[in-house]
């Protein structure tokens, strides 16, 4: 038995380690290459460790862009979008999963259907709408269209379906109001799903490029990906050094959010006292 366990363990680590190498290897190259001069990045065959170590790519980004402003814009938009989604999507997700109300099925189908509409097709109508509402070049225009997303509702509903009804029924029998049940019983059970939704929404908002590019008409409203694209991709040439340095700069906050939240995946029903 012990021997089998050991074999299983060695096998598992080998597979996971190999997987990590395949996934992180290219990524590591990108990080290292962001600290090489342009000519070395483009050289074929490529180098792993920088022959010439330089922070010029980062320095150039910082000096040519209003980095703090773009970072602040991205943070404001991503945080508010995420908070909105957490609130609105968990409310509706709960209602769809656990409450019987007229039109429930239709509402779910409409929301789910919208999730399936290719986003390219709604782009121009959405922009014209935002423009008619006078929201061009405002935080409202950057945030409002993403505040309530079908994706979040679908995620929350599917997760909540797997929470036993008995818990909620018991609280109802005790006379608790629906809002109280939601806040005191349902939400604490949703840790993993809310953590997932936070990461995915934050990431989507943080990386969003086309919408903020079109809605922001002055540079002081540019988000980070938009500002970073300004000088890395030209009419006839791409600056790989700036692309990679920009990618690393954009990535860091998302990785931090992920590391902070990932331990919530560990907490779930197992630790919420459900027997």
């Amino acid at each position: 038995m012990r021997r089998r366990d050991l074999v299983a363990r060695v096998g598992l680590y080998t597979v996971l380690g190999a997987g990590l190498l395949v996934v992180v290897g290219p990524f590591l190259w990108a990080v290292l290459s962001s600290m090489k001069p342009e000519a070395e990045i483009r050289r074929i065959p490529a180098t792993w460790w920088p022959e010439v170590f330089t922070l010029d790519n980062y320095r150039e980004l910082l000096s040519r862009l209003d980095f703090p402003q773009a970072f602040a814009n991205s943070a404001i938009v991503a945080v508010l979008t995420t908070l909105g989604n957490l609130a609105f999507c968990s409310l509706l997700g709960y209602a769809l999963a656990k409450l019987r109300f007229p039109g429930r099925r239709a509402l779910f189908l409409v929301v789910l259907g919208t999730l399936m509409v290719p986003s390219m097709v709604t782009f121009v109508p959405q922009f014209v709408l935002v423009s008619n509402l006078g929201l061009v070049n405002s935080y409202g225009g950057l945030i409002l269209p993403f505040l309530a997303t079908p994706f979040g509702v679908f995620l929350m509903r599917q997760y909540l379906l797997s929470i036993p009804d008995e818990l909620i029924e018991a609280a109802r029998v005790d006379g608790a109001g629906e809002l109280r049940i939601f806040a005191r019983i349902v939400l604490p059970l949703c840790g993993p799903a809310l953590a997932t939704l936070t990461i995915l929404t934050f990431l989507a908002s943080w990386n969003n490029f086309l919408w903020p590019l079109v809605v922001a008409t002055t540079e002081d409203k540019y988000t980070l990906p938009v500002a970073l694209a300004l000088y890395s991709v030209g009419q006839n040439r791409i600056e790989y050094g700036l692309v990679l340095a920009g990618a690393v700069a954009v990535l860091l906050p998302v990785v931090i959010v992920f590391v902070l939240l990932q331990r919530h995946f560990l907490r779930g029903i197992a630790t919420t006292g459900l027997k």
Binding site: V128, V214, T217, E219, A229
Partner: peptide
């Protein structure tokens, strides 16, 4: 007042601006 626009998707930005009457 100059706004720098990334080349990437600049065409889309201008087309949308024309549709929304938000051109410079």
């Amino acid at each position: 007042n100059v706004t720098a626009v990334p080349w990437d998707a600049a065409h889309q930005k201008i087309a949308s601006a024309i549709a929304g009457k938000q051109t410079p």
